[in-house]
Nucleic acid binder design. Sequence first.
DNA 1: GACCTGCTGCGGGATG
Length: 759
Amino acid sequence: MLPSPEPPAFTLLHRSLQEQLYRMQWTSLRAIQTAAIREVLLGSRHLLLSAQTAGGKTEAAFLPILSQIVGDHGGGVRALYVSPLRALINDQFRRLEDLCERAEIPVHRWHGDVSQAARRNLVDRPGGVLLITPESIESLFLNRSGALNRIFGRLQWIVVDELHAFPGSERGAQLKSLLYRVEARAQKRVRLAALSATIGDPEEACRWLRPGAPDAFRIILDDWEREIRYQLRGYLRTGDAGDLVSPEWDDDLTDDAGAAPPETEADGRLAADLFHAFYGKTALVFANSRARLEFYADLARREAARRRLPDRFAVHHGSLSRAEREGAETALRSDTPTVTFCSSTLELGIDVGRIQEVGQIGPPWSVSSLLQRLGRSGRREGEFSVMRLYVEENEPPPLGPASERLFPHLLQAVAMSELVLDHWCEPPEVDGMHLSTLVQQVMSVIAEHGGARADRLYEHLVTRGAFRNVDQAVFVATLRSMGVADLIEQTPDGDLILGVVGEKLVRRFDFYAVFQTREEYRVVCQGRTIGTVQPPLDAEVGSYLILAGRRWRIVDTDVQRRELQVLPSRGGKVPYFPGAPDPDVHPRVREKMREILFQDRLPAYLDSSARDMLRTARAAAREAELDREPFFQAGNTTWWFPWAGSRVQRALWGLGRFIAGLQVEEDEMALVFQDSTPADIRAAYTALLPNLPAAEALALRFPILEREKYDEFLSRELQALCFAGRCLDVTGAAAVIRAFSSRSGSTDANDERQVANDE
DNA sequence: GACCTGCTGCGGGATG
């Protein structure tokens, strides 16, 4: 590389930060850090920094930003750091305090656990850096509106950490809205620095953050590539009760009623493999539900007990108490190798020390999440990342239809693995309309000012705010819905103020968060809270449950206080954790699944059982001639495999069910029709093409449209608008229908050529 | 076949 004519980035930093780096014994800066230092100190654009966890992103942003604000004492916050997690704020607080020590820059933090004294300190003497959650920014607008000009008047920088956690969700819409409202309080232009580890499409992420100003960003990507060690193991679960696990798994438990192990022989093999692969290492093992985590953690612990080995397993998920979770985090950071069964709570950048290997049970939900999890191991240069994937499928009945031998979970896991190797992951969702969050923000702005005129609200939240994809008609309709629900009302001189219901909502403790939550029961053992479980409960005194990977017997229930008293037990049963609707699968993943099904290559990272299963699936697909026709028929039932993303498939389902009047259900990657032949289905859908309804009209036919917290206060038409935008792809559905109806007349030979070309 | 996240001010009583 040619020597740069510019001064080295290090010398651009303020002297006190240079000294601080010496003291911390940093010998060099990473490429991403020098690039960020130059852009912050010599350029004028916003920044998007994308690098692996522990790749030094935070320092890349903060070294030059702190350099700019050294010597500034009070008079207002200069840099605002927003994080989706309190734990991340606490991590960063410690790191920033070190960096800021010599430079004498005050560092404040504000979230639900921060003391009143620390809050008062910020309000009385705002300055330096403030670390905060979106919800706590909301609380500043509601409870400290008088101090906002003082706090944010001199703001220069907003840093958004873990950016990928925000686009596409109602919480992201809230964050964006709050950032515009904060900027409106600043006297000068505020620059943004967004940080992310896995962002599928950086330009799209910038467009989400600042629509209409894509050139305003400098995107800096880290090119550090790590070696990956990858394995996918397959397990066939036989449905035969006679094959249930051998007695050695529950030898001590036969005296305990309710202790009957629900696991199958395949679960037993999987658990034994987990034990061999991970015991004695520091590892994270992810699974797709809290119930599965508890299940495998319990199996692993019993396996250790059976071998008379010490328990080296921990569990970490959102339904465990803070003490339990902190215990698991401490064990991970300790010198004792611990295997932690965890959910996405440990997917984000919280520092849990050095992870040797990562496991994933079941197909991941998204490529982005798989990448994020993979990136938790091998975080140092020279180390490699290790991912072990475990996928179970039910063994199909020997004489059953070919459609039951396609193994969709295995296909999805292989497809996502291939996409990781292709360096692809889902792009952020930038266009979603979150009217539920708009409802909340309208109430928040009215509460902030005591009242507001409709045109000012429109300007504040829409034309100069975060809801730019909401047009005036939709905005007016939203206000009207809010009026009908008594959230707001109009005074005789035209001001909008909070209505009776609105007043109550704003005063509620949970107003600050825009996402839905449900009621929970605390599980308490001798005064110590283990975690929570959610109703409906079949919890009666004497019954069992498994929580935090340990077995408990319920000894008392208190419905009033929503509390279950438990004692350790040898019996156990994984409690019910209710879930949300099926997660959406990106079209690219389904395309890849189809590709894998119709090619012959066996990826090298499959074990022999996964290979056998993939061969079986391919043979079944060939036998059913799915490469020629997307249909498979058996008796009165026809399966249609559109190989499309969830939104297209959902639209196809709605069109068939509500418009064509067919008997159809969705089953993972297929639409399943009763009493219709492939020819019927083709004809019915083709007949729809000339008069295909708009997505909104189709959405109105779906019985349940409410999805977000304040959706219930919107008219059904507005609910349909949000649903159509976020859950249905009618244009994509039309393309699928056109593709199969144009092929129906062609000969088989042409068809085959077509398929070959497609691939 | 889902996962995760977050949130107040105030008054009353005990303690140093």
